[in-house]
Design a protein around this nucleic acid. Structure first.
Lengths: 72, 72
DNA sequence: TGAGAGTAGGGTAATTGGGGCT
DNA sequence: TGTGTCCCAATTACCCTACTCT
């Protein structure tokens, strides 16, 4: 995984020359797919989508990963 | 391939400058047309309706596609 | 410090996909 | 050919309580 380079006011951050990332909450991902937030958590538990954990245990999802799922 | 940009509280999300999307479940589409969910499933299989797949394989339908069918 | 929204768990009922049949 | 129905396994939604974040 690339090193963290910069953080923008809107929450996006860069990890490489042309890499812009943003983390989505379970609720946001759920609304995108039209499913329950618990379902998104289940996808993470079963390894269907990568997830990032906050120090307190909550899950966050990379915007790029979700976008890839929407496009096949 | 449009990149995911933002997610609204009502479930709509944008993939481009003027693109707003929302995904519907097979049951919702079935109730709209007054048919069995299986029939909606077949419409997707025969290519009559574009469909988006969840990571687990279930189908979701773009509200814009359904609206286009209702108006055409 | 308190209020409200969101999230993580678990448990159970409902929905979905697929094949086959009508 | 298109649709509805039955079956089964897998997946998801809704119920609850507790914890986290704004």
């Amino acid at each position: 995984m690339a090193a963290l380079k910069a953080v923008a006011p809107d929450g996006t951050f860069t990890t490489g020359p042309d890499t812009v990332e943003r983390l989505l909450t379970p609720g946001e991902v759920a609304r995108i797919f039209g499913v329950d937030p618990k379902t998104v958590n289940r996808w993470a538990l079963t390894g269907r989508i990568p997830s990032v954990r906050t120090p307190s245990g909550q899950r966050r999802y990379r915007q790029s990963d979700i976008g890839a799922l929407l496009n096949g």
